[in-house]
Design a protein around this nucleic acid. Sequence first.
DNA 1: AGATTTTTTGACCGTACGGTAGAATTCGGC
DNA 2: GCCGAATTCTACCGTACGGTCAAAAAATCT
Lengths: 197, 197
Amino acid sequence: MTRRREGATGELTLIERARRAQLIEVTIELVADRGYAGASLAAIAERAGITKAAVLYHFPTKDAVVRAAHEHALAALVGDVAGAVEAADAASRPAAYVRSMVGHLREHPRHTRMIIEAMVHDDGDQDPAARWRPLAELISAARLARGGSGDIDARTTAIIVGGGIDAIVAEQLHDPDYDTAAAAEQLIDMLDATLSR
Amino acid sequence: MTRRREGATGELTLIERARRAQLIEVTIELVADRGYAGASLAAIAERAGITKAAVLYHFPTKDAVVRAAHEHALAALVGDVAGAVEAADAASRPAAYVRSMVGHLREHPRHTRMIIEAMVHDDGDQDPAARWRPLAELISAARLARGGSGDIDARTTAIIVGGGIDAIVAEQLHDPDYDTAAAAEQLIDMLDATLSR
DNA sequence: AGATTTTTTGACCGTACGGTAGAATTCGGC
DNA sequence: GCCGAATTCTACCGTACGGTCAAAAAATCT
């Protein structure tokens, strides 16, 4: 009963777990502070106090490190938002979505920059609307629950509101004093006006 | 009376003008198709049918080429939008702004990608709100012209609407069949509802 | 303690990049 | 045809990057 890695099960050593977590952490910081280009293998290694080769011992490639960091930041965000949305009733779920997303991003600016940077630099030709599909579905459901009669396009509405979220977040990343909560409420007002039309 | 360059006046040869224009053009194409990273000196030179060194004869540095390309694309956009806005009365200028910007970007997708790519990759810590300040002023003026009484924040409104514009454009760049005109009208509706509150 | 495995290191390789230097070419004006 | 300027080429330099390799150093197990 050893603690070595078992190829089949993929069991990991405690040290390896810790290192991986540390590498993910410093990579997030690095991407947040200096952008994708600033997150070189050498830079990651230096911040972690080891060498490039040691980093590549824990991850097969540099992209794997960045990908892991991105997934880590993203998982925290979607978990947060999903919780807030489920706690609301159908009619106010879009509002809860916007509110919790802006709130999370304000509380975790590093993760935010990481996510944004990854979205920009990733594969380029990915449907932006896919990102907001969950929001689009919440919007459709909320419109049903409210009995709005206008024939608004949920997809387009989600795209617009999503863009608004991104813009608010970007502004807050530049000016930490920006009142994102108030901005989120104004965006929610605009959305509500569209929903009940 | 020769046609050589006159150091003091900065007069340019015809050939140099043509080359510079061509280099700007291929750089825009390159950035649009393959992103900032894809616009290397070698790639630019290859598309122009010359060598790296020849490119650097016409521009002092690679960044100068990209900067010139960006400014070229941006100038076309702001000229277009400014014309459309001036042709409208104060109350409907924000709508004209949104409409003409989305329209221009739809008709010049290459220029659009160039502008977006430059905005993302430029210097990082630039105020996103600065981009939408002209829109913010149009919004303030329109609210006055309409006699709306609510105390909405023009800056935040401009940020949100600007984000919506970006999102619509991004969606169109991914899906050329996306109805950006309809999306722009919906965004304008949301803005109008906020303006007259 | 000895054996074995996990982790780290240092030295190296290949590539792509932006940029430079000087020689070569083209081209218009005389 | 010649001269000088405008334009382009070839060859090279230095740097930074991601990645590989064998060997050393810790850590762990028996």
